[in-house]
Amino acid sequence: MTGLSDQALNRAYLSRQCLLERRSASAPEAIEHLTGMQSQAALAPYTGLWTRLVDFQPDELSQLMYDRAVVRLSLMRSTIHLVTADDALGIYPLLREVHQRNLASNQTLAPLRASIDVDALTAAGHRLLAASPLSGSALGEALAKEFPDYDPAVLSRAVRDLVAGVQVPPRGIWSKGGQPITTTLESWLDRPLTPYSIDTLVHRYLAAYGPATPLDMQQWSGLTHLTEVFTRLNLRTYTHEDSGQTLYDLGSIPLPDPETPAPTRFLPAYDNLYLSHTTRTRILPTHHRPHIFTNNGIIKPTVLHNGYPCATWTHTKGTLTISPFEKLPRSAVATIEAEAHNLLDFLAPSSPHQVSWAKDQRG
């Protein structure tokens, strides 16, 4: 088997994530290719699409949400993702066991699990959310009328893992936003769940995140027992030069030259780039992880330079502040500042622009 270095995997990964060059694709095409975008930070996918696509405009994604062509719901790893309507209906049934496993392991829900009729709670939650979109607190109050012996907040939290619930607009709408209001996926789309095969999901994962191992896909999805699926499929295999692990891939996708130049890119908070492999050295040097992943579970917005994160960034009222991990050469500073101004044109087109550095680490 051909050996692949982290550098080769880095360029392959950036290419599949539309980060070696911006793609001339529509927002739904990109979201489908990526098999969803992490949307824990409700507006993060807008920046994630801007950094990946040619001429992306926020109104395109907002209209897709209003048109119900894309939706926001809990999917991979039981976290909120932005996906196409078809993918939501196809992927959710495959991940139902992941959500139920999360319900079983959540210590806050332990007293409820021990005594409640879970099927009855599921049916009640589905019925209430299908009848009308509800906030978490309103759902809890309605459920407490049927299950008066339980804490409304705990009932509402449990239903998140039992029912496919879509967060409806204006949540996730550019320049608007709002609190999470949820209805059922089936009622929002007026279509039934239509599960994909696990084979299809493996192929979709590898198209956006490969070459990868079964454990990598488990990290991305939360699914288990994937090795037998990978080995059953007719996949190309490589060997990771450092670990010796077997990496699987689609035979139809060529790998880019490992020395392909990687442009500067700004990524939003919680970008899938950092969440989709067990070992992240292809994209995240171990010594830089503490700069990005906080102890309370936040994954900061980052700057990629030469294919790897070199800084985090924040934006407030037209000012984009860059916090580098270490001293950067002048050439890198100039390139990063130029792309920062491009991002400000997108984030705050009518505001005065300013790029600042949180600490002087410029060469």
Rank of each mutant, 00 (worst) to 15 (best):
N295Q: 15
A164N: 02
T278Q: 10
L226E: 02
G36R: 05
D271K: 08
G177S: 07
G90A: 14
W50G: 02
T237R: 12
I322P: 07
T237D: 06
L284G: 03
Y274I: 07
H240S: 04
R72F: 02
T312R: 03
P309S: 11
L328N: 15
E29L: 03
L49M: 11
R77Q: 08
M37D: 12
A110P: 03
P214M: 12
L284Q: 11
L103E: 15
Q361G: 15
V83P: 15
P258H: 08
Q57E: 11
P261A: 10
H353P: 15
V83E: 11
T231N: 14
S5M: 13
E97S: 14
P261S: 03
P195M: 06
T47K: 10
G125Q: 10
I116Q: 02
S15Q: 13
A124N: 15
V303E: 15
E228H: 07
S74P: 10
T47Q: 05
T224L: 14
M37R: 00
Q245L: 14
F56W: 09
T321W: 10
A27T: 04
S39H: 00
L103Y: 09
T200R: 09
F56C: 01
T335R: 12
T213A: 02
D67E: 11
R77Y: 08
F293L: 14
A153W: 03
R52H: 10
S39I: 08
R191K: 13
N272W: 12
D6G: 02
L304Y: 10
L162G: 09
P261D: 08
E32L: 00
W50F: 04
I116F: 00
A348F: 01
T321L: 05
Q354R: 07
L49C: 05
L4D: 01
V118A: 12
F266W: 01
Y205T: 09
P45D: 05
A262V: 03
S78C: 06
D242K: 05
L304T: 13
L255Q: 10
I292Y: 12
D345H: 13
T278C: 13
T286I: 05
D87P: 11
L121E: 10
Q100E: 14
G90K: 03
T213H: 10
T231K: 05
R265F: 07
S331P: 15
L201G: 07
A311M: 08
P93A: 00
F147W: 07
P152N: 05
